[in-house]
Simulated assay, not measured.
Amino acid sequence: MNEIDKFRAEVADNIRGLGEDTDVQALSRIWLREITRHKYAYNFSWMGRPLIQFPQDMAALQELVWAVKPDLIIEAGIAHGGSLIMHASFLAMLDYCDAVEQGVPLDVTKPKRRVLGLDIDIRAHNRAAIEAHPMSNRIDMVQGSSVSPEVIAQVHELAKGHERILVILDSNHTHEHVLAELEAYAPLVSPGSYCVVFDTLVEDMPDELIQNRPWKKGDNPKTAVWEYLRRLNGEGRSASDGAKLQFEIDKSIEHKLLITVGPDGYLKRV
Rank of each mutant, 00 (worst) to 15 (best):
N43T: 12
N43L: 13
N43I: 05
F44D: 10
S45P: 00
W46G: 02
G48A: 12
G48F: 06
G48V: 06
R49V: 10
P50F: 08
L51F: 11
I52Y: 15
I52G: 04
I52L: 14
Q56R: 10
M58W: 05
A59C: 13
L61D: 09
A67G: 13
V68M: 07
D71S: 08
L72G: 00
I74T: 05
I74R: 08
E75A: 12
I78C: 12
A79M: 03
A79N: 05
A79T: 02
H80E: 07
G81A: 00
G82Q: 02
S83A: 14
S83G: 05
L84T: 02
M86Q: 13
M86Y: 06
A88N: 10
A88I: 06
F90M: 13
F90K: 02
M93P: 01
Y96L: 15
Y96H: 13
C97N: 09
D98Q: 03
E101L: 08
G103D: 06
V104K: 12
V104Y: 07
V104M: 14
P105G: 13
P105K: 08
K110L: 14
V115W: 01
L116T: 03
G117S: 02
D119S: 06
I120S: 09
D121E: 14
N126T: 09
N126P: 00
R127D: 12
A128F: 13
I130A: 11
I130W: 04
A132K: 07
A132R: 09
P134D: 15
M135H: 06
S136V: 10
N137E: 01
N137P: 00
R138Q: 10
D140V: 07
D140W: 12
M141H: 02
M141W: 06
Q143F: 09
Q143E: 15
S145D: 15
S146V: 04
